[in-house]
């Protein structure tokens, strides 16, 4: 499904107007993006990679970017692909057996950046976010407090937090508290 026919001005983003952070963490709602939940068996990965224009990652906790698209490994047959319009059609053009479901509006994203970014996320996320354990481009589904998120490290001190829209207010609020605390006691390691 594409948004081409729609008046983009009438889109209401769940975190519209949200702002927050602290001296060491910047919190920003990400702009709208197209996303698909892509599912396929191992034998069809190559064809889909071709069609989408990037190599779908096959190692756990990794992502790949290319052609304005980013594919996040979420499970052995599951990717979250984020990018410009046309993802469903691109996947379909592969001719390979797969499932591509539009989740562009299901998710929204929070961009967390700054020297305290990891500490802020660790206020609610049980993962080891040291660079050794969670390097740039690492990604996974995990928890932030009481809600599920998909976490992608976009730079040493920047993360993208994908979250279902109705949980985004909670996630933003918790990250806000985490950001505040990170300013007082930044990344311990």
């Amino acid at each position: 499904m594409v948004d081409s026919g729609a008046d983009l001005a009438s889109r209401t983003l769940p975190l519209a107007g949200a702002h927050g952070g602290s001296s060491v963490v910047l919190l920003e709602p990400a702009g709208p993006a197209e996303r698909i939940s892509l599912r396929a068996r191992a034998e069809d990965v190559a064809a889909l990679s071709n069609a989408i224009g990037l190599d779908l990652p096959v190692r756990p906790k990794t992502s790949a970017s290319g052609n304005g698209r980013t594919a996040l490994w979420l499970g052995p047959d599951e990717w979250l692909v984020i990018g410009e319009a046309g993802l469903v059609q691109a996947a379909a053009s592969s001719g390979a057996l797969h499932s591509a479901t539009d989740v562009s509006h299901r998710n929204t994203a929070i961009l967390v950046s700054g020297p305290g970014a990891a500490a802020a996320i660790n206020s609610g996320c049980p993962l080891d976010l040291s660079l050794a354990a969670f390097p740039v481009a690492a990604c996974t589904r995990t928890l932030l407090g009481k809600v599920e998120i998909v976490l992608l490290r976009t730079a040493e001190d920047a993360f993208r937090v994908e979250v279902w829209r109705s949980f985004s207010g909670y996630a933003f609020g918790l990250l806000g508290e985490g950001a505040r605390d990170a300013a007082l006691n930044p990344e311990p390691l």
Partner: peptide, 9 residues
């Protein structure tokens, strides 16, 4: 077990 908030498997 299911890694429900991870890979889902």
């Amino acid at each position: 077990w299911r890694h429900i908030h991870g890979c889902g498997r």
